[in-house]
Design a binder for these strands. Structure first.
Lengths: 235, 235
DNA sequence: GTCTATATCATGATAGAC
DNA sequence: GTCTATCATGATATAGAC
């Protein structure tokens, strides 16, 4: 069943303790098992709520999934725009450094991973995995939530890098999204690879990830331009 | 039911026309709907085969999924190693250029997307999406298929970049994997973003993707090293 | 608002005729 | 090798008591 942004019973934002427990449980389980791999039974079991509670509070499983993402993405994107606004106000018309823009977008996301109030690493993992999931309604959900923000940041980057063609920046922004999505989705595995097995080193890991990913992203963003001459004909 | 590499009836490699149609249909459908989102009924329907044919030829749905990946990854990784071997033989002990190594690994993958004999863009999309999917058995399948190859390439990169710390290269290799996975998984969407809507421009799109992604990856790989001093304590 | 009980459907797998 | 028919299971969603 398709749901508009306001469901039949008028609940889109958690108004009860049960609804919030459902959101938390869904977020945690979907980060581990994927969205399709998480059943309503698993969610209500973990949240110590009744099977019917999902339908009551969110209209359907789909409504619950949307609410899980909205709760975090609204906060994230507001924060991103707020940061970019501040940077631009401070610069008074002079072009911003690309590193500042990249940090406002990707750094804000990564710092969410250390903010338990906003889902922490769990939501980061969920978001990363979702970004390549081939679900129609998720695609459109993420697109809606992100579209305006991404447009703003692309514009800022284009102004910030006058020597890089506009089209190239659009592609590279996409590549940056990919590197980030994968890095946060596979944080568990990567932590093992990096030899950090204990929970206590998780914080340190997130700091390392942030610093290292950021320099990687900037290196890619400012890389020498590709030779597209062979694009005309296959070599 | 768990399957070893040889199933009860002894079929792991397609020996019949039906088995091959099943592999093709599964590959196509899973690229679009995801692995969990693709049912055996969908596959047999598309392949014009019977419901029971999957069990007969591959033992289970899981066996079929494994066969889909093995068919392509075996070819891909053989090709990668062959290319790297040739480069090293040609260099006669002198260090390889990083761009050559990156091309042997990622370029070979991207060129698969223009090789219909090896699944073309369809398999690329499936692989990209799968790399962030949180399925246990897929994780281990990909790990098995990739482990030895990735080790070889990491070693080659470390030798090729003596000024970059070993750990940094490992992280950056992971970031490169992510940027690539996302780029090939979202090829549809990206094509739309880039303004290429017609099927006829798909080839040109893949060429552009290849050139642009490659320069991005190399830029990230050779980026200035991050400042990790703030890693000790949270800022 | 929360529960139990149930309706309805789709899934993966299998048995057994041909 | 291929089919039909069927199984057990688990999914979402809902009706109706409390």
């Amino acid at each position: 069943m398709l749901l508009s942004s306001i469901d039949p019973t008028g609940h889109t934002v958690p108004e009860s303790a049960t609804a919030e427990r459902l959101l938390d449980a869904a977020e945690r389980l979907m980060a581990t098992h994927g969205i399709e791999g998480t059943s309503v039974r698993m969610i209500t079991g973990e949240a110590r709520a009744n099977i019917a509670s999902v339908t009551y509070h969110f209209g359907s499983k789909e409504g619950l999934v949307q609410a899980v993402f909205r709760r975090r993405l609204d906060w994230l994107n507001t924060e991103r725009l707020r940061t970019l606004d501040a940077l631009e106000a401070e610069a008074r018309g002079t072009p911003l450094k690309p590193s500042k823009i990249v940090d406002a977008f990707f750094g804000t996301l990564l710092r969410m991973g250390q903010n338990p109030q906003q889902g922490g690493a769990v939501f980061l993992q969920l978001l990363g995995r979702t970004m390549t999931e081939p679900s129609q309604f998720i695609d459109s959900l993420l697109a809606q939530e992100h579209e305006a923000v991404i447009k703003r940041f692309k514009r800022a980057l284009i102004q910030s890098l006058p020597n890089v063609p506009k089209a190239e920046i659009v592609w590279r922004f996409h590549f940056m999204l990919g590197a980030t999505a994968y890095a946060i989705a596979g944080a568990d595995q990567l932590a093992v690879i990096a030899g950090l097995r204990t929970k206590s080193s998780a914080d340190r890991y997130m700091h390392q990830l942030q610093a290292r990913l950021m320099s990687f992203l900037l290196g890619g963003l400012r890389a020498p331009l590709p030779d597209l001459s062979s694009t005309e004909r296959s070599p």
